[in-house]
Amino acid sequence: MIRHLVLFKLNEGVSRDEERVQAGAKAFAELPGLIPELEFWESAWNVSDRPIAYDFAINSAVADADALKAYAEHPAHQAAVTQWREFATWVIADYPF
């Protein structure tokens, strides 16, 4: 299994209440029903207000490197990523567990 973690930071001046941001969060929330390679999925807004905290997180898992590639290249994933590029930056970590 491979754990896929993503932490998103909204760009300066962007609020999580904006319609485009809510649409982006919804697009990610819908991925488990669209991408069969996803074996586990959590996504949520951060509740911490610490200055170093990121704003949104995804914690997911896939079976192997091929499944991770299929997930990353899936059109629904790519569409969601395109939305987030407009208002956020992110970091990822993929590791076996």
Score class of each variant (00 low, 15 high):
Pro75Ile: 04
Leu31Pro: 00
Ala79Lys: 06
Leu10Gly: 01
Phe28Val: 08
Ile2Tyr: 14
Val14Ile: 06
Thr82Met: 14
Ile2Trp: 15
Leu38Gly: 02
Ala72Ile: 13
Arg16Ile: 04
Trp90Ile: 05
Arg50Glu: 10
Val21Asp: 01
Ala57Trp: 08
Ala61Trp: 13
Val81Ile: 15
Gly33Cys: 07
Glu86Pro: 06
Arg50Ile: 10
Arg50Gln: 11
Val81Met: 13
Gln22Thr: 07
His4Asn: 04
Ala29Gly: 10
Val91Gly: 12
Leu38Val: 03
Asn46Thr: 05
Pro32Ser: 09
Glu30Met: 09
Arg16Leu: 06
Pro96Ile: 15
Leu5Ser: 11
Ala57Glu: 05
Leu7Asp: 09
Ala72Gly: 15
Pro36His: 14
Ser43Trp: 01
Glu19Trp: 07
Pro96Asn: 15
Ser48Phe: 03
Pro75Phe: 03
Glu73Tyr: 09
Asp94Ser: 04
Ser15Ala: 12
Val14Glu: 00
Phe87Leu: 03
Pro51His: 11
Leu10Trp: 01
Lys9Pro: 06
Ala57Cys: 10
Asn59Asp: 14
Glu19Leu: 11
Val21Asn: 01
Gln83Leu: 10
Trp45Ile: 00
Ala25Thr: 04
Tyr95Gly: 08
Ala25Asn: 07
Val6Ala: 05
Ala53Ser: 08
Lys69Gln: 14
Tyr71Asn: 03
Ala88Lys: 03
Glu12Pro: 13
Val91Phe: 11
Glu12Ser: 15
Ala88Trp: 02
Glu86His: 11
Glu42Gln: 10
Trp41Asp: 02
His4Pro: 05
